[in-house]
Computed example of a mutant assay.
Amino acid sequence: MSESAQQIGEKSQVILHFDLKLNDGSAVDSTRVNNKPAKMVMGDGSLTPNFEKCLLGLSVGDKKAFSINANDAFGMPNPDNIYHVDRTKFASDAELKEGMIMGFAQPDGSEVPGIIRSVAGHSVTVDFNHPLAGQDVIFDVEIIDVK
């Protein structure tokens, strides 16, 4: 196989290990925890375009870390994505705590994660921004295979 065939291009199938960390070094996500590398096809939507750009041109065996600013990673928090929900909309036995992430059913049957920001009386503040919105991240990758 020629070297160029092993370089990641726009339609490549890629198997990689990655660590996603905050600038303080705390781990957010990692494929190494369970030693299960991620499998993806470039352009399939598993990674945002800005994360995919980091991978273009890398080859099997490459290890590289990329610093991605908040705007290019998960965007900035949008105040329109924060809702005040009446406590009665939750199961009566649901234990709601600040910081917990819950799934909220959408009309189409899909689920969207929301972070409970506060519980005050009958009002529950739910943040539907990505949990990493507003955070700069480090995307640390190791390319296992490219097809």
Rank of each mutant, 00 (worst) to 15 (best):
S30H: 13
A70Q: 14
L16V: 03
P131Y: 10
G109Y: 00
T88D: 12
L58Y: 09
I15R: 12
N129S: 07
V33A: 15
Q106F: 00
K53E: 14
D72F: 04
S4T: 06
I115H: 01
I116Y: 02
A105F: 00
D62G: 07
K89S: 12
D136H: 14
Q13L: 09
Q106R: 04
I138H: 05
D136I: 11
E111C: 00
V60S: 13
M100Q: 13
A133W: 05
V112C: 01
I144H: 01
L22H: 14
K53C: 06
V41C: 09
K97D: 06
F74A: 01
D145N: 14
P107Q: 06
V146H: 09
F90E: 00
V126E: 00
R32A: 07
E98P: 14
Q135R: 11
D136Q: 12
F104C: 01
D44F: 07
G121I: 08
Q6K: 08
L16G: 03
Q13W: 06
F90D: 02
V14I: 11
S92N: 11
D108A: 00
D86L: 04
L55N: 08
Q7N: 13
V33L: 15
A133R: 09
I8C: 02
R117E: 10
N69E: 10
T48W: 02
M1N: 11
D127R: 09
T31P: 08
V28W: 09
V33W: 13
P49F: 03
Q7K: 15
C54T: 07
S118H: 03
N81V: 05
D19K: 15
